[in-house]
Design a protein around this nucleic acid. Structure first.
Lengths: 137, 137
DNA sequence: GTAAATGCAAAATTTTTGCACTAGG
DNA sequence: CCTAGTGCAAAAATTTTGCATTTAC
């Protein structure tokens, strides 16, 4: 559970943080900050978008979340911090996880003299759902 | 030469476009729109940032440029449209091309049922220059 | 001459910041 | 208590848009 790990890092377990964590846990839709904010609005009317951004940044720095820069306009977030590929559909804008089988992406420690710490692999095209729709018509 | 290819696409060769193309040709610094704009300001004081964005979008759509979404805050551009990896230095924010030898990135046509048209591989860490600086001190 | 491109300024979006107030531990 | 965290509103930063004017062909 992520909550206990946060405690160990000296982070306070506020209701806002727990709610954000709950939304993200097991979530494969890769929401952006604003989507999380709107989902929580009904329950937490006083919640601030700044708090959402703040929490997401903390979680990314703590290695509990992964930031996804696949879309040109806004950042998305993945509760799975293990490096894996993502696919963005040009038609419906959905982001999919691509599980490279059991082989997660290997991060080369050194590339042309650069010290590599992290990596991201993004793929673009038409997702299987949109492709099927097209086929039906 | 890119200019002639643009003509074939029915695009007009305006001074602004040619200037933007000239700045990008052979450029390995991966400039953002604003950097291009500022480099051209002295020579083209009336140039509009909207024209820079417009031109960049046209060139990307025409397949003459590659958009780089490696940085979370702004988009960068690469005059080399062939898929290849990029490296972002967390210390100096420079973007480097990673030439995967002669093996360019292969785009799988199909991944888990999705139709893949394009891809991007990004790497993050400390570049060789910043690493060397650290070592000297 | 005419459609395409430009420049300008305003708007739209996303993200960040400063600061007073609140509350978790 | 006391510091970390929150909320608010304003600001910053990037990108887009509408429209009148200009210009490449």
């Amino acid at each position: 559970m992520v909550m206990n790990e946060l405690k160990k890092l000296g982070l306070r377990l506020t209701p806002q943080r727990m709610a954000i964590l709950k939304i993200l846990e097991g979530n494969t839709t890769h929401p952006a900050a604003e989507e999380i904010f709107h989902q929580l609005m009904p329950q937490y009317p006083s919640l601030s978008i700044a708090t959402v951004y703040n929490t997401l940044e903390i979680l990314v720095k703590a290695g509990k979340l992964q930031e996804i820069r696949i879309s040109s306009d806004k950042r998305h977030f993945d509760p799975n911090p293990v490096p894996h590929s993502h696919f963005l559909c040009r038609k419906c804008d959905a982001i999919f996880d691509l599980d490279n089988g059991s082989l997660d992406i290997e991060i080369p420690s050194n590339m042309e003299g650069h010290l590599v710490e992290d990596c991201a692999h993004y793929y673009y095209g038409i997702c299987r759902n949109c492709r099927d729709e097209r086929r039906d018509k």
